[in-house]
Design a protein around this nucleic acid. Sequence first.
DNA 1: CTGAAAGCGCTTACAG
DNA 2: CTGAAAGCGCTTACAG
Lengths: 360, 360
Amino acid sequence: MTRPTARAVAEATGVSRTSVSFAFNDPSKISAETRRKILEEADRIGYAPHPIARMLTNGVTNTLGLLLPQPIPEILENPYYNLFLRGVGQVCHREGLTLLLTPPLRGSMLTAIPYAAVDGFVVTGLDVDRGEVAALQRRRVPFVLVDSDAPEGVPSVDVNDHGGMVSVLEHVLQLGHRRVAILSFESGRDRPDAGYRGALARRIAGIIDALAEYNLALDSPGITLLEVPCTRAAGYHAAQQLLTQPDRPTAIVALSDILALGALDAARDANVNVPTQLSITGFDDQPEASYARPQLTTVRQSIEAKGRVAADFLVAAINGDVQHPHQLLHTALIVRESTAVVPARAAGRRGKGAVCSTAG
Amino acid sequence: MTRPTARAVAEATGVSRTSVSFAFNDPSKISAETRRKILEEADRIGYAPHPIARMLTNGVTNTLGLLLPQPIPEILENPYYNLFLRGVGQVCHREGLTLLLTPPLRGSMLTAIPYAAVDGFVVTGLDVDRGEVAALQRRRVPFVLVDSDAPEGVPSVDVNDHGGMVSVLEHVLQLGHRRVAILSFESGRDRPDAGYRGALARRIAGIIDALAEYNLALDSPGITLLEVPCTRAAGYHAAQQLLTQPDRPTAIVALSDILALGALDAARDANVNVPTQLSITGFDDQPEASYARPQLTTVRQSIEAKGRVAADFLVAAINGDVQHPHQLLHTALIVRESTAVVPARAAGRRGKGAVCSTAG
DNA sequence: CTGAAAGCGCTTACAG
DNA sequence: CTGAAAGCGCTTACAG
């Protein structure tokens, strides 16, 4: 019942364990006949070199680790990660590597690291504030940071979150919308006052800057910021809430397509026409965005490219490349069918409201 | 630049390597003070026990392997695997395990096995004909077979493919359809004459049985069987082809939702109304099936449950449970909006065609 | 409570 | 072309 070892093959074949190893790893060092005998016996008893012993000796696992911020089932619910995984998977395919999904252990991403048999990590969703990067560096394991705030000495991949957010919000404001709900995914901050980090921080900054051009701010009347879990259902419920408010928003700017699609569902069920009565925008440009009806106006980023570039950087780092490349991928505003000029009635109401408040 | 070892910690702290190991694995065996000193030094130099050395010694990896029939990027394009992975992921989460995605190595699933540092494999999409199972068994690695033709001594999980297929095809035939295109995903057979295997074989058998009730067969006039890659695009193109035929089918029965959704896209673009001019059915009941317009009539199977049960069985096998459970999950016909009685014109034409052929 | 020693299963210079 | 030996880094009975 116990696994066959090289010793068993060696004894049955009458050769040394060295020869058995050579049969698998360097056939040029033994005779063809010896090799044939060894492989035949190995096949017969089901022997293959123990992968872990081999990894220990060779110091190579041929496995890329993907350090995740949430348990695997939650990660896979998010289409974002599906695309990201594909990008990483492309590199795995090209390089002949396996991919280890490494969720947090006892609630901590860092704790999971020393248990993973990998050559390096692609790190996504890490809160990089409190010494996490330093801890990672001390481990002497190659890694690449994605969508974080990477310090100089660490390879990293990001997208132009700030620019993307500015462009979509400008688009909405140009259409005349002034009652705008920002639908954000949860920040993963420990405390509400901890401040935003990484990609989300850059998107929020983009929102603030775009609003400022119109003399608005996050706390201006008519501007709302909601944080919800990053699921279609959460987008649905948040939008449902918003649509029942007396002075409901004329535009919902979501920080993720999945949230925007949920909002689209809610509008349909509430018989609110998009875009004539309500504009909705997303972020990501996932395939779903163009399958939706109306097709979603959104910010395109190539999530797949992000995964691919991150894995490329990791492979380079594993191969001893001492560069620490930072790549910033571009974003682009994709205007489709889900945005339109603010409804006349709402614009009128807005005017009236402004007069009222001036009078009051 | 080299990784710190237990020896380094031991020397810096003035204790033996044994004590260092105990500090991490069995604190009860050393004094609290000694432990504190060791952990402090370990943290300072970034030491943690080498995961691979630990795996070799302990004989446990805390990793589940998922043996895949295609490269990772292709797998992730298929929403089926997303759901399946979630099910497996749930068990990983519950048990505190990581998940290794193991694609074929040099084109072979079997070749990939001896390189993976895992405690066992969930095996999906394996062609179980030619001794693959025997090879797997000889390795003495626990594994669970999914959607295959598992022999008695091997844990396995399947769904009622045959019954599901019978019920959906009966539904379509009862609605009067006699020009029916079966849209199948590719079988992965080496040769066209190799015969179907596993789940696909059972579905095809279900089709044949349902047709037989109506005195039809796969090669009856009006019945078509197409094999295409399992992607939305392939479903689209296949349906596009079918819809331009002179005697185009009045129903498309797809063996997968993703194919059916592609067919739905094609019908919309060809201005063919579903279901009044064309009925379309799927298989799986993925979330997309009910988001689609019209909502898709399909066969429900719980892909997620399949993954979960398979992983449960694997965990049991790893824990030395010597049972070899086989589980057959149920399927159910879900009638929604994409099926309707055969169009009168087509029914008429069919009648006329029959008369003609009799006359001819 | 601590330490010297064996063992997990392999690979690979090195000597023959 | 083949074999004895060291080493990869750890864990854990066992003796002190």
